[in-house]
Design a binder for these strands. Structure first.
Length: 210
DNA sequence: ACATTAATTGTGT
DNA sequence: ACACAATTAATGT
């Protein structure tokens, strides 16, 4: 049994008491450590995660089998992909890794349909999840299609800083390159330029944003 | 403390 | 993209 207050605090749009009670009784609580694999490609989706604290990094495979970084989900979010996958009875098309220590609850998928009809709160929550994710993907698409790698890198660093709540990013150039579908050398060179501009301070396994 | 090795980052082509 | 140099962190002695 999960504390109703915990759900209320993190998901303020879910207000219906009956719904909250159902969530509290049916959900399971989980904690993950930074770097833990939370969901992987091809696995069946048996539950929907609601993030209580921390963040998950979501990526998928492109046609060539290359991993690409999609987005983060944070406190108060759920995973749009999980919602679609479970509704269509599909296997996971994404991978989720804990970006930091993360607490979440898992809702059994059996109740999803029922709740969508029964609770307006829930229906709106799901719809707004789709909507904001779609918006975000459009932004990403725009970045990929129309912006240079230096802008993408800057945005990537900013986002990561925002998610982790720190200007000290512990990451290596190779990892960034993978997330942005670039090469390590290109990232290293861009970072070097940014350092000369006084935007960042570089050290091994760490980038400090200024 | 020093030497060795491995991992990460830098740079020229 | 590749090859190699340089630097830094990790480990052993």
């Amino acid at each position: 049994m999960i504390d109703i207050q915990l759900i209320k605090n993190n998901f303020p749009t879910l207000t219906n008491l009956e719904l909250l009670k159902e969530i509290a009784t049916l959900a399971d609580y989980f904690e993950f450590e930074e770097g833990d694999l939370v969901m992987d490609y091809g696995k069946p989706i048996r539950s929907i995660p609601l993030i209580i604290e921390g963040a998950l990094k979501i990526s998928r495979l492109d046609d060539n089998g290359h991993e690409i970084f999609l987005y983060y989900i944070e406190k108060g979010d759920t995973c749009a992909t999980s919602l679609t996958c479970c509704q269509l009875g599909k296997l996971s098309t994404i991978k989720a890794v804990a970006e930091e220590n993360t607490k979440l609850i898992k809702l059994p998928i059996q109740k999803m349909d029922e709740w969508t009809f029964k609770y307006v709160d829930w229906k709106n929550f799901v719809i707004s999840t789709y909507s904001s994710r779609f918006e975000e993907l459009l932004l990403t698409l725009d970045q990929v299609a129309f912006h240079q790698m230096d802008e993408r890198l800057l945005q990537y660093l900013d986002e990561k800083a925002k998610i982790t709540g720190s200007n000290y990013l512990n990451i290596k150039h190779q990892d960034i390159a993978q997330d942005l579908n670039s090469s390590r050398e290109v990232i290293s060179r861009l970072l070097k330029k940014m350092e000369k501009n006084g935007d960042v301070v570089l050290s091994r396994n760490q980038i400090r944003l200024l």
